[in-house]
Amino acid sequence: MKSIKAEGQARCPNHCEQFDVEYWSFVRADQDPDLKTAALGGELNLFCCPECKTFFHHDSNLIYLDAPAELMVFVFAHADKAKEDALVAKMKEDYALIKKTLSKTLQLDYEPAYVFGLEALKSVLEHEEELTFESEVVAAACAAAGLQVARLKPAYARKNHFPLYVPATDKPGANAYALAAHKVLKTGLNSKLLQNFMDRMSEEGASAPLLL
């Protein structure tokens, strides 16, 4: 499924006359990296009022999907915040339909997120950038310590505040991963994500992490 544009009318915040626009309603970030860059830069669905020349975001619903990152975000119009409960219920219905439609090409076995407005989407993506950066630092530290690197299932890592990459181990069980993480942290690496991973894997009864 490719990125999709829709047609509508944009309403300038200065109450100028509405004008016709084409805006993105479905974004496949993994297929269209330029759209991901636009969302991070605050330029996605950004329009200029032809009357007063003010730039503003078109306030409309949008679905953002980055399949490899296991990230799906339903972006609701900021003006609809009061309808949150109804929108979340509708989101669950739409997600079930999307899963059915894309089941042959994508494994959507994770829960979607939702936000209101494109600024909130930008914040989500900025957090993703921070997660990716710290995860890459962890991977480099693992390699420097002479350890192999294992990649966690992205949705699992995100939900549990773990890095995307952790030191691999050939021994079974969560405690083996905790010991490997401890070895990397002892090198002087300052990673809250890996520290949290080690702490959680050290807990009594902890399950081994979900690997990709």
Rank of each mutant, 00 (worst) to 15 (best):
R11N: 14
E136K: 08
E204N: 07
A176C: 07
L125C: 03
E126L: 14
L35N: 05
V27K: 01
D20P: 14
F19H: 11
S123I: 15
Q9F: 12
Y114S: 13
T37Q: 10
L212V: 13
F55T: 14
E111D: 14
L179P: 01
C52V: 12
E126H: 11
E119V: 12
G41Y: 02
E51Y: 06
R151A: 14
E134L: 04
P163Y: 02
K99E: 15
H58Y: 11
L212Q: 10
L194C: 09
H15F: 09
D34R: 10
K192V: 12
L35V: 12
C142N: 04
K2M: 09
R11C: 13
G188K: 09
R11D: 13
G205A: 04
S25E: 15
L46Y: 01
A180I: 12
R28E: 14
Y156W: 13
A10P: 15
R28V: 06
D109R: 08
A174L: 05
F74L: 02
E136P: 04
K92P: 04
F56G: 12
V75I: 07
P50A: 01
S3C: 07
N45H: 04
N160R: 11
A89T: 14
T54A: 06
S3V: 06
V88K: 03
S202K: 00
L65N: 10
M201W: 02
A89N: 07
A145N: 04
A143R: 14
A120T: 00
Y156P: 10
Y64S: 10
E119C: 04
N61R: 05
A86K: 11
A208R: 01
E204G: 07
E84D: 13
K192P: 02
A145L: 00
Q107P: 10
G41M: 05
